[in-house]
Design a protein around this nucleic acid. Sequence first.
DNA 1: CAGTCGTGGCT
DNA 2: TAGCCAAGACT
Length: 290
Amino acid sequence: MPDLALADALAPWFRAHARDLPWRRPGFGAWGTLVSEFMLQQTPVARVVPRLAEWLERWPTPTALADDAPAEAVRLWANLGYPRRALWLHRAAVEIRDRHHGVVPRDVDDLLALTGIGDYTARAVAAFAYGDRHPVVDTNTRRVIARAVHGRAQPAPPHRRDLAEMTDLLPPAAPDAAVMNAAAMELGQVICTARTPRCGECPVQHLCAWVAAGRPETPDTRRRQARYEGSDRQARGAVLRLLRDRDPSPVAEDAVLAGWPDRAQRDRAILSLLADGLVEAEGGELRLPR
DNA sequence: CAGTCGTGGCT
DNA sequence: TAGCCAAGACT
């Protein structure tokens, strides 16, 4: 039995306050939605918006991207971070071209089978692009449910049962469910934020279990991010930035990060990038994958 | 399950 | 200022 109080309170707020984002324009299309969701994985909205427009102008369809070189995808990804997402998006485009006649699939299991698409992205595409009734659960939604429903300051670590819990909060009609999914994410992003929530402006504060309990602190089980300064990730980032800037010209392997303080780390970075397929080696030179 | 994987703005 | 955080996915 769904508890629709949250949905009933969130829907009007969302209709009145939803930001005008590109992927919310009518007729944005499943491909645009898919690309935007890839870019939004761990990257803030503000940085995605301009890059998304460039990407879709250059590759208006999955097949257009699939027919181009992976190097171009990695290069246009630029500074969005986690560059293997660019590679995986290119692979997904190839799979869509070869297995789905160039049409972004609508079925969640078909979407899950694509490279780089997990529980969140598969359902986001099915729900937002195709309007189907699926639970779309991201970090914002988990936080909103933790507070409003369970009275906890922070959510438990992500778990598959989160999907079933969100399903119980969705209205029966598909279009209303899509609004609820988007509204929960929006609320978590602009009001019910991780660090300093703006409860005074919250449209569901009157039924929020956390507010009712006096906003208690609860044990924080979130995973801490490893330090970036001095990390292997930083070294990988530096290697790839260099190859992006030089592309399509290759760079002599000896010249890549020649002055890096930690030689072993520099070698590790190159080897792991090769293993990931983000870099190719040929004749003692490195370059983006063609 | 816990570790790994970029980048930059915000507090 | 240094840490926190961001529409996650894969191994």
